[in-house]
Design a protein around this nucleic acid. Structure first.
Lengths: 146, 146
DNA sequence: ACTAAAAAAGCAACATTGTTGCAAAAGAAA
DNA sequence: TTTCTTTTGCAACAATGTTGCTTTTTTAGT
């Protein structure tokens, strides 16, 4: 049974917010819910479209920033100047994320997925360079579009 | 001897443009030169600052787009909504790039480098996904800043 | 439940970034 | 040099992101 009632989801959302010392507001509930009911990542534009009718643009910006700060969501690098956000699977500690999974962008449906089971490989850097975070984005065709 | 005279560089630039069937104009020469005399990648903003005093913003946009189309430069994905461009080492054929190198962003000087000697690793994807292009961005400290 | 303090939302104004159409200027070709 | 083609600059616009401040909502203490 994967179906959850609206109330259950609502509780889950409120709990997540409280766990992160955030006050529970309509916009935060709504936006967090968007992420929970969405498998892939959301571009800022998507979120604004789906939540923006009800909330101010500025609120969306500020909410997303807050979620990133708290480690609830993380950003995914893209080459086309459209920030994408996705839920952090394991709760990241405030301040620094430790998502070692790769990201997959489907060139057909244009969705972005976090492949939580695929770990970023070790990269051997030239002498003198020291590695911190490694970000891998794979472009291809996802299982729904093949 | 790594030093080149201004005239030599100018010839190199003109040749590159001609080889790509582009007419040789001031703005294209200037912008291409910026890339040649710069080890790392350039954010759009950088280019606009350095070339924009002499050329219109629109021209910069169009020139960069042209260079990308021709395979002279390529874009580098970032998580902060600032497109970065870098020269393609091996001339990419028009339309599709084949740069299998990784990108390195220094967290100290904030420069972006193409590490042409570091090849992107094979990524094993879950069943159902097929991989196209793989993009790797490593964040860390570069050899100049350590 | 009520109230006071704190936090967030909404609004307005603005800054930055990116796009488009068209006239003027510059480059290529003869 | 002259003609034709391409590119540039300009202006106007659209989209995206930011900031300060007031009003509303949430929280916590009574």
């Amino acid at each position: 049974m994967s179906g959850k009632t609206a109330i259950q989801i609502d509780n889950q959302v409120s709990d997540m917010l409280k766990r992160n010392n955030l006050s529970v507001t309509d916009s935060r509930r709504k936006i967090l819910q968007l992420f929970l009911e969405q498998a892939g990542a959301l571009a800022h534009g998507d979120i604004e479209k789906r939540a923006g009718e009800k909330f101010d643009r500025v609120t969306v910006y500020r909410t997303l920033q807050t979620f990133v700060d708290k480690g609830i969501i993380h950003t995914i690098p893209t080459a086309d100047n459209s920030i994408r956000y996705a839920l952090c699977k394991d709760e990241c500690s405030e301040g620094h994320h430790h998502d070692h999974h790769i990201h997959f962008v489907c060139s057909v449906c244009n969705n972005t997925y976090c492949l939580d089971d695929v770990v970023t490989p070790e990269i051997k850097l030239p002498k003198g360079y020291s590695a911190g975070h490694v970000e891998v984005v794979v472009e291809g065709v996802c299982k729904n579009c093949k």
